[in-house]
């Protein structure tokens, strides 16, 4: 475990070194984040110019959902997505061979190698939106609520990671998988609103097929005082199960890995 922690830290350090060379990316990212934020806010005010509540969610509550959505999206694009994209590239080009001949846990190694620092802008902006939402809600942020929120966020993040790893492991059989990035982005966009607003079939899909519900709605429920301990336990159980499946599938995939030819 300590070894993995050291590795993660070192890759993180190198990732930052890498990213600092491309400072222009920071401003591009800032612009993108601001546009995304503006679009989100305009959408919200459009909705609430007609009504005061949407499926039982008030305006500040939906703002909180938006904050979590921004933040989680940033986290995914900062840590999970770049690693999985690099993994796909490595499978295609055969450079995965190098990762697999290292004396470290292969799954851990391929999961911590890459970081896109500037996506952190979205994380900060999401946190800002979340802070404004909490102020508007005039909710008392007890330690219990904060802990539940962090726990829900962690479970959701781990589920998204496991989901991504399972998809990416598919690259061992299907070499070209880049388009799943766009597919995921498309589905993730649906998480901007609480999944309870969607029809049953879509809600089920967003909960169990692509874990958007657990990544965004459930943490937002924690902030808005809707989260039951049953849901949190479910999130925890599902996260563990998905992680186990992802790990099993990764090693199953490795046995079938034939490598890009010489």
């Amino acid at each position: 475990m300590l070894h993995i922690a050291r590795l993660t830290w070192n890759f993180f350090r190198i990732g930052i070194l890498n990213e600092l060379q491309y400072r222009a990316n920071f401003f591009i990212q800032l612009l993108q984040s601001l546009i995304a934020l503006a679009v989100g806010l305009v959408g919200l005010s459009l909705v609430f110019s007609h009504t005061t509540a949407l499926g039982g969610w008030s305006r500040p509550e939906l703002l909180a959902v938006m904050g979590v959505h921004l933040m989680m999206g940033g986290l995914i694009r900062m840590t999970i997505q770049p690693n999985m994209q690099r993994l796909m590239g490595d499978v295609r080009e055969g450079t995965l061979d190098y990762a697999l001949t290292k004396p470290a846990d292969s799954q851990a190694l391929v999961s911590v190698r890459q970081i896109q620092l500037w996506q952190g802008v979205d994380v900060l902006m999401g946190l800002g939106v979340l802070a404004v939402a909490t102020l508007q809600l005039q909710a008392v942020l007890s330690i219990r609520v904060a802990l539940a929120f962090v726990a829900a966020l962690l479970c959701g993040g781990l589920m998204v990671y496991a989901f991504w790893l399972i998809l990416t492991t598919g690259a061992f059989w299907v070499i070209r998988m880049e388009h799943i990035v766009e597919l995921f982005d498309g589905v993730y966009a649906a998480g901007r609103y609480p999944v309870s607003l969607y029809p049953d079939w879509l809600r089920t899909g967003l909960t169990f097929l692509v874990p958007v519900a657990f990544a965004v709605t459930v943490p937002a429920e924690a902030i808005t005082g809707r989260l039951t301990s049953t849901t949190l336990l479910q999130a925890f159980g599902l996260a563990l199960a998905l992680l186990a499946v992802a790990r099993w599938f990764w090693f199953f995939g490795l046995r079938h890995y034939a490598g890009a030819s010489a």
């Binding site: 590795l7 070192n10 190198i14 080009e93 055969g94 061979d97």
Partner: peptide, 26 residues
């Protein structure tokens, strides 16, 4: 394992930093 047609050093940073990474891995 060394393959002449594939590199494992990080492209954008000096080799010294990549060496450091190997130090952690091993």
């Amino acid at each position: 394992l060394v393959m002449g047609n594939r590199n494992q050093l990080q492209w954008d940073i000096p080799a010294l930093d990549s060496f450091e990474l190997n130090r952690t891995i091993y």
